[in-house]
Simulated scan of single mutants.
Amino acid sequence: MQTLKPALLFAWIIVFSCGQRPLETNDKTQWMTLQQVSDSLRKQKKPVLIDLYTDWCGWCKVMDKKTYANKKVGAYLNDKFYTAKVDAETKSAITWKGRTYTFNQNYRTNDFAVYLTKGQLSYPTTVIIPVDGEPQAIPGYLTPPELELLVKYFGEGQDAKIGFEEYQKKFKASW
């Protein structure tokens, strides 16, 4: 009986120590609300990335799983951008930079989505708002390497220095 107790204790230690998961860092893209983005912009300027999606969009879901959940994408976006997800079809009012956008019956979408895409609605759409710049809408599903080119152009401030075509020719992908 005496030898059984240490064996049980050892088994108990093994079971419970194996059940403990190591602390994980969350490298997925960390999403903010538009209000949090606005508040953060008042403190520190960074480009903004908006994932414009709809609930019914299959490619939006794929982009969430394969692109925004990618560790390299998440780490870069979390460091260099303020990121927000916006449901293009929300019926809730959206306030951005002092203006309120409401649901538009004609487009069956929120006017904020119309503003961001200049009326060229497509889902998913990645919208990048450079520091002190206008929204740049990039329609369609983007893989991590495709997104890398775009976010590094704006994230490294190259948009203020050289044209996109020149940057694209020199760009070396690493994702």
Rank of each mutant, 00 (worst) to 15 (best):
Q2G: 14
T3G: 04
K5I: 15
P6E: 08
A7Y: 08
L8D: 04
F10T: 03
W12E: 00
W12A: 11
S17K: 10
G19S: 12
G19K: 06
G19Q: 09
Q20L: 14
R21K: 15
P22Y: 01
L23C: 05
L23H: 08
E24K: 10
T25Y: 12
T25N: 11
T25R: 11
D27S: 06
K28A: 08
K28H: 13
T29F: 03
W31H: 11
W31T: 08
M32I: 00
T33N: 07
Q35P: 00
Q36S: 09
Q36C: 03
Q36P: 04
V37T: 03
S38F: 07
S38A: 13
S40P: 03
S40F: 01
L41A: 02
K43P: 00
Q44M: 10
Q44V: 10
P47Y: 04
I50D: 00
I50R: 01
D51N: 09
L52E: 05
Y53S: 06
T54I: 12
D55A: 09
D55L: 04
W56D: 05
W59H: 15
C60P: 00
K61Q: 15
V62S: 03
M63E: 12
K65N: 15
K65Q: 12
T67G: 02
A69F: 04
A69H: 02
N70W: 07
N70H: 14
K72A: 07
V73C: 10
G74Q: 04
Y76V: 05
L77E: 03
T83W: 00
A84F: 06
A84M: 05
A84Y: 00
K85M: 09
E89W: 04
E89I: 11
E89A: 15
T90M: 09
K91G: 15
K91Q: 15
K91E: 15
K91Y: 07
K91F: 06
K91S: 12
S92M: 13
S92A: 14
A93L: 11
A93N: 14
W96L: 12
G98M: 03
T100H: 08
T100W: 11
Y101D: 10
N104F: 04
Y107H: 10
Y107V: 07
Y107F: 06
R108I: 09
T109C: 13
T109V: 14
D111M: 09
T117R: 10
G119P: 06
Q120H: 07
Q120Y: 08
Q120P: 01
L121N: 01
Y123M: 08
P124Q: 04
T125H: 00
T126F: 01
I128M: 03
I129T: 02
V131R: 10
D132L: 06
G133F: 13
E134A: 12
E134N: 07
P135Q: 04
Q136N: 10
Q136Y: 08
A137T: 08
A137H: 02
I138C: 05
I138L: 11
G140C: 13
Y141E: 11
T143V: 12
T143G: 09
P144S: 08
P145Y: 12
E146A: 13
E146H: 13
L150D: 03
L150N: 13
V151H: 06
F154M: 09
G155S: 07
E156M: 09
E156V: 09
G157R: 13
Q158G: 02
D159W: 06
D159R: 11
A160M: 14
A160E: 14
K161H: 05
I162L: 15
F164G: 11
Q168S: 15
Q168G: 02
Q168E: 15
K170L: 12
A173W: 03
S174G: 11
W175C: 09
